[in-house]
């Protein structure tokens, strides 16, 4: 059970706001998939930026750390 608890926490709690945004943007009135797409695109771009910049930082620090 210890190892299983993370899955419901991830999908049932931590990702709730993401579901809200996706459903709200796409199905919320007025329907406008172009603007919703821009909003979701911004969110995906920011997610990629945050994760990629963290990874890049790890690589750079790995090169300059003297041990």
């Amino acid at each position: 059970m210890t190892t299983a608890i993370g899955i419901p926490i991830l999908f049932g709690i931590l990702l709730l706001p993401i579901y809200t945004v996706i459903v709200g943007f796409l199905l919320g009135e007025p329907r406008d998939f172009r603007t919703a797409g821009i909003g979701l695109g911004v969110m995906v771009a920011m997610a990629i930026f945050m994760i990629a910049s963290t990874a890049m930082m790890g690589v750079v620090f790995g090169r300059i750390t003297p041990f």
Binding site: L16, T20, G24, P30, R34
Partner: peptide
């Protein structure tokens, strides 16, 4: 200009999502 109303709606949904994130995560 036509996207203004949708943008208002999206900011409301995003506001709700931030509230959920604050009180769960």
């Amino acid at each position: 200009p036509a996207e203004r109303e949708k943008l208002d709606s999206m900011l409301r949904w995003l506001g709700l999502a931030l509230l959920i994130l604050a009180f769960t995560g």
